[in-house]
């Protein structure tokens, strides 16, 4: 902002500057490496703790459902992976925005490392959903709006994974993948609202922000614990991969000091 134009509101201006400083401060790869190394054990062990409690409770102690019987226990994996599939893609899109607008080196690396983990979550969501569909609905797969839009999300992940690695010049790969990630964001609201906008074989969501959950509490608690465990596990995996990626950049810089910077970072 040029000096001649005074900021409209002094407080909002300083707030923006402070937020910007905050992001610049923590988005530095070296600093991120140190912080994530320090918090990694806490994230990893709490992820293991909550996942074991949640899945153990869901598998052995929660009651069978009145219509689905014991097959309802697949839900304790299906729902957390479904949420992570969408949340992971949202994170990928934020990285893409950061790559295109602010050209943050950490955002580039994060996009590269989040996508494979998110793709695995989406694959798990599709596989467990299909394994639940066969005994419940009577079919492994139908082309309804919910199932198809999640399959599209999986292909978006695969496209991102290959596009970001497809270029000799790494920066061009990051930018192309960022554009794909941002364009694919349209799929997220489609997934979320597909069961409300169109009639589908998949049932509407049981947990929403607007009304009381239509799950009995004896099933809701193990579900919440496994959602927490899986989310922490997702973070732990991304942290570990991102730390390895930061070290690998450093290794490339030491091994090939004469290379252009865009081929290293």
């Amino acid at each position: 902002m040029p000096d001649s134009i005074p900021p409209r509101s002094c407080t909002s201006h300083t707030m923006i500057t402070r937020t910007r400083h905050f992001f610049h401060y923590y988005a530095n790869p070296g600093r991120f490496y140190h912080i994530s190394t320090r918090i990694q054990p806490y994230v990893t062990y709490s992820a293991l703790f909550f996942t074991f409690i949640g899945l153990g409770w869901g598998l052995f102690f929660s009651p069978p459902d009145w219509q689905q019987g014991d097959t309802v226990r697949i839900m304790y994996i299906h729902v957390p992976t479904a949420i992570l599939a969408s949340a992971g893609y949202a994170a990928l899109a934020l990285c893409g925005l950061s790559t295109l607008v602010w050209q943050h080196p950490l955002a580039n690396l994060a996009a590269m490392e989040i996508a494979p983990v998110g793709a695995c979550a989406t694959a798990l969501c599709l596989i467990t959903g299909s394994l639940r569909g066969k005994p419940m609905w009577g079919t492994y797969w139908v082309w309804d709006a919910r199932l198809t839009s999640v399959l599209i999300l999986f292909f978006l992940y695969l496209g991102h994974i290959s596009l970001i690695r497809a270029f000799e010049d790494k920066q061009r790969g990051y930018q192309a993948a960022a554009i794909l990630a941002l364009a694919g964001v349209i799929d997220l609201p489609i997934i979320k609202f597909s069961v409300d906008w169109w009639n589908t074989l998949h049932q509407p969501d049981s947990i929403t922000l607007t009304r009381a959950p239509t799950i009995s509490r004896s099933m809701l608690w193990p579900l919440i614990l496994s959602m927490l465990g899986f989310s922490l596990g997702f973070c732990a995996l991304v942290f570990a991969r991102l730390r390895a990626a930061i070290l690998e950049v450093r290794i490339r810089a030491l091994l090939f000091p004469s290379h252009r910077r865009s081929n290293i970072v």
Binding site: L59, D70, T71, R73, I74, I77, C120, I127, R132, P135
Partner: peptide, 17 residues
């Protein structure tokens, strides 16, 4: 109405991945 194969397969494949 129990389908242990589908439940075991779901938990198994999750554990592997």
């Amino acid at each position: 109405m129990t389908h242990p194969v589908f439940i075991i397969a779901s938990y198994g494949i999750t554990f592997i991945i």
